[in-house]
């Protein structure tokens, strides 16, 4: 396969993922609205928002790092997405999957936030460092159970390649990590709540006390990059979870169905529970999910996955 075909395929794949992620965001807003007893915005509202922000006539920059912040964030989203095989066995949606890509993806999940921290810090608004401090602290906290779960998965399948992890889960739904290593899935799903920043762990955005959090100074085009990335990054994370724990997908419909239900988990939790304070959320992540993650490694490495 020539490099240009790959680039074309990657472009198609990224576009589909972005559109899917943004639509998912619209559905979630609608869903939250129905829980509140409202009609809510239309499903395509995120697209309108992106057009609106990117069509502002003026824009204020605070320096070079500020310009680079959204670019880093977008690079984090793209990097996460481009190294995950979205659909098992598909050439178009295979992306740049390779040996050891799991480590790269784990790195890219973190990368965007760090780049954002550099950019938003230069904005000079006191609320952005506050939001960044909370965001990075919470990220460090939920990375612990997530990493433990990923280590358990890597031990289980003797591989750091997502494609071979997915391949090992094919056949029957009983081969999914969900059934072969449930402890790791529980730890990872709890850490996904923090990753998606829905209600119990929405302290980073904290619209009431620290308006909007890190992107408080981001305007116009910068904001539209961040919004686009939000859709892409959401899709990338969901696909990663689907691949690692729910047996991957062999076609687009299966991918959409699975990721939708994985996302609904964090949405349902978010709609039902109030918000944690920062220190509560860090403590929560470092307590039960971490213990479950350690147990899952013990279970898979020393007990051989046999109950």
């Amino acid at each position: 396969m020539s490099i240009w075909t790959q680039v074309l395929y990657a472009a198609i794949s990224v576009t589909v993922a972005t559109v899917y992620g943004l639509t998912l965001g619209g559905i979630v807003r609608k869903l939250y609205a129905r829980v509140h007893g409202r009609f809510g915005p239309p499903v395509w509202q995120p697209f309108l928002d992106i057009i609106q922000t990117s069509s502002r006539r003026v824009s204020v920059s605070h320096g070079n790092m500020f310009l680079l912040g959204p670019v880093f964030r977008m690079a984090g989203g793209l990097g996460t997405y481009l190294f995950i095989p979205v659909i098992f066995g598909s050439a178009v949606f295979g992306n740049f999957s390779m040996a050891g890509d799991l480590l790269l993806v784990m790195y890219f999940v973190f990368f965007g936030q760090l780049g954002m921290a550099l950019g938003a810090g230069q904005g000079g608004h006191p609320y952005s460092p506050l939001g960044i401090a909370r965001g990075l602290a919470q990220m460090s906290a939920f990375e612990v159970p997530f990493t433990l779960a990923v280590i358990a998965v890597a031990i289980q399948y003797h591989s750091l390649n997502i494609t071979s992890i997915v391949a090992a889960q094919q056949g029957s739904f009983l081969n999914w990590t969900l059934f072969t290593n449930p402890l790791a899935v529980i730890a990872a799903m709890i850490s996904m709540l923090g990753m998606n920043m829905h209600s119990p762990f929405s302290i980073v955005m904290a619209p009431q006390e620290i308006p909007i959090g890190p992107p408080v100074e981001m305007n116009s085009g910068f904001l539209s990059i961040l919004q686009t990335n939000r859709g892409l990054f959401a899709a990338a994370k969901l696909v990663l979870f689907m691949n690692l724990f729910f047996g991957g997908a062999t076609n687009l419909l299966e991918m959409i169905a699975k990721t939708f239900f994985i996302y609904m988990f964090s949405v349902f939790v978010g709609a039902a529970y109030p918000r944690f304070r920062p220190e509560q959320s860090f403590r929560f992540f470092l307590k039960w999910p971490t213990i479950i993650g350690v147990l899952s490694i013990i279970y898979i490495a020393y007990l051989g996955g046999v109950l």
């Binding site: 409202r38 809510g40 915005p41 239309p42 309108l48 619209p207 909007i212």
Partner: peptide, 10 residues
């Protein structure tokens, strides 16, 4: 929000 109006704190 059904008209696409949303509050923005900044």
């Amino acid at each position: 929000s059904r008209y696409g109006i949303a509050p923005r704190p900044t």
